[in-house]
Amino acid sequence: MVSFTDREWWGLIHGMGFGALFLLAFAGGLAGLYSLRPALVTEAGIAERMRRLRIGVVAMAVAAWGTVLTGTWVVYPWYREKTPASPRSQLLADPATADWHSFGMEWKEHIAWLSPMLATAVAFIVIYYGRNLIRHDRVRRTAMLLLVLAFAFAAVAGAFGAFITKVAPVQ
């Protein structure tokens, strides 16, 4: 029978719950922004497209905040417990795995926080500017760049999170 501890559940919520939602929302948000051009949308499609885009970028921002908040305030304290069995202690105890903490975790725990700020800015732009995005290509492209940056920073954090969990899981 498959069972998870409370800590493993929180790890799943942090990485696979919010993380998967973030990925999904990013793909939808990027596609929505990319195609938000007069030549690619019909009049009837604009309202529907804008509604979907708003939902997508807000979901992405919520998922990004959910990821960093659960990661920092729920999972991370277990990771760094001052006990020999904590993942941090296990990684640092072996020179062969110490870099997973001193570089991987140290970068992940900080860089991840850039993602929700960027995602929130994108959500603000889409909600504030609305249909003006269709007419102002420069703003639309700027929003896309911010969205891609939010994803890139989350990807760095997510990749290190997956690798570190593989080497020394929170249990």
Binding site: R37, P38, A39, L40, V41, T42, E43, G45, I46, F124, I125, Y128, Y129, G130, R131, N132, I134, R135, H136, V139, T142
Partner: peptide
């Protein structure tokens, strides 16, 4: 509104909405 990157596609009539300043963005 005309899109310069895809001239073959028909341009949509973008409903008139008040143009907002870019400052807040």
């Amino acid at each position: 509104v005309h899109d310069t990157t895809t001239p073959a596609a028909p341009a949509a009539e973008v409903p008139a909405v008040p143009d907002k300043p870019e400052g807040p963005i």
